[in-house]
Simulated scan of single mutants.
Amino acid sequence: MQREATAARLLKISAANSYDPGVDIDWDAPLDGERMYAPEHRLSLYGTPLWDSLTPGQRVELSKHEVASIASIGIWFEMLLMRMLLRHITDQDPRSGHVRYALTEIGDECRHSIMFGRMIEAFGAPAYRPHAVDRALGKYLGATAGGVQIFAAALIAEEILDALQREAMADDSLQPLVRMVSRIHVVEEARHIRFARDELARQVARAGKPMLWYSQVMVGRAAYTVTRSLIHPDAYRSAGLDPQAARAAAWRNPRFRETLRWAGDRVTTYLDELGLVRGPARALWRAAALIPD
């Protein structure tokens, strides 16, 4: 069975190539006050008049809080994914490779959430929580999501973050801590993405039209939540900016919207091929800046 073959391959990769962030990262290494935390051209305000008004030190501070915000939302999504994966496998055969790999992935996500939390702490930054409406929707999704919604939502969050981190880990001008955290996450998320893509294709093939229509709406809302939650308004406040004015400038910024489309291109294309970026839900994808206006 293809599902079991995929699980066996991913379990072998997991056994050979996994990290322990508590050991593999030097958490005591000092941060460099002059290094950026993310490539400046990926920051939400880059290219705006507000960006031009910032000093080099303010730009570094903004980059720190944007990365802390993205890591915070990453933790929230990983916790949501863990709940959904546990629901997905609860009634399945625990002897199967599929269940073993899902539990292995949950273990990976536990370490990732701890790693992101320690990184935020090392920055001296706060943890940025999603809006109350998004937290409520997350609870609903965690309690009700079926296979299509579980794996499509997982891919949206995983692949957008993966694109940003692949670029960051290769940029030797950035903070070494950010680069190492990005490298660990990219290596381990690669197998999570493979698992989710394969399982999503199976779930879509089995779903009827009513479920696909419902999934289009829920997946579109998940895409909207991901991109709109990446940079919390309080991250701008922490960097010394007016949060409402800075957020408005970011969402008007064509460079930031292009960054979101770039980061989401692979997953948006894949979900569109599966028929999940269709109908009225496309308005949510446009509002998420993942497809052109």
Rank of each mutant, 00 (worst) to 15 (best):
182 S>R: 07
103 L>H: 01
287 A>S: 12
244 Q>I: 09
277 V>D: 07
264 G>T: 01
278 R>P: 03
106 I>W: 01
193 I>N: 13
252 R>T: 02
265 D>W: 09
181 V>K: 07
188 E>M: 04
287 A>T: 01
139 K>E: 11
277 V>K: 06
231 I>V: 15
75 I>L: 09
197 R>A: 05
171 D>Y: 09
95 R>S: 12
200 L>R: 05
194 R>I: 03
192 H>R: 10
138 G>S: 12
187 V>W: 00
27 W>P: 09
135 R>F: 07
223 A>K: 13
218 M>S: 12
71 A>H: 06
23 V>Y: 07
55 T>N: 08
27 W>M: 06
17 N>D: 14
105 E>M: 02
115 M>C: 03
141 L>K: 08
120 I>T: 14
3 R>K: 11
95 R>P: 00
275 G>R: 10
123 F>E: 12
113 S>M: 12
242 D>H: 03
257 R>E: 10
216 Q>M: 11
116 F>P: 01
177 L>T: 05
227 T>L: 11
221 R>H: 10
20 D>H: 08
247 R>H: 10
73 I>T: 14
101 Y>C: 00
260 L>H: 14
203 Q>V: 08
125 A>M: 05
35 R>D: 06
169 M>P: 02
191 R>H: 02
157 A>S: 15
109 E>P: 06
22 G>T: 07
173 S>V: 01
145 A>G: 11
169 M>V: 04
194 R>V: 05
89 I>D: 01
17 N>G: 10
99 V>Y: 13
83 R>C: 02
81 L>V: 08
120 I>G: 14
172 D>V: 04
72 S>I: 09
19 Y>L: 07
148 V>I: 15
170 A>I: 00
1 M>D: 10
42 R>F: 10
218 M>D: 03
115 M>W: 01
278 R>M: 11
41 H>W: 06
253 N>Y: 05
255 R>L: 14
58 Q>M: 05
143 A>N: 13
118 R>K: 14
65 H>M: 04
144 T>K: 14
2 Q>P: 15
168 A>N: 09
19 Y>S: 12
119 M>E: 08
100 R>Y: 00
146 G>I: 00
259 T>L: 11
228 R>K: 12
292 P>T: 06
242 D>C: 01
131 H>T: 01
203 Q>C: 13
230 L>R: 05
275 G>V: 03
231 I>A: 04
70 I>T: 09
138 G>C: 03
223 A>F: 13
206 R>H: 08
53 S>K: 10
22 G>I: 01
143 A>Y: 06
12 K>A: 15
59 R>N: 00
203 Q>S: 07
11 L>G: 05
247 R>P: 00
179 R>F: 04
128 Y>G: 06
10 L>V: 02
170 A>T: 11
186 V>M: 14
141 L>R: 14
99 V>L: 13
24 D>V: 09
97 G>S: 03
146 G>V: 04
228 R>N: 10
250 A>M: 14
172 D>G: 01
19 Y>P: 00
77 F>S: 14
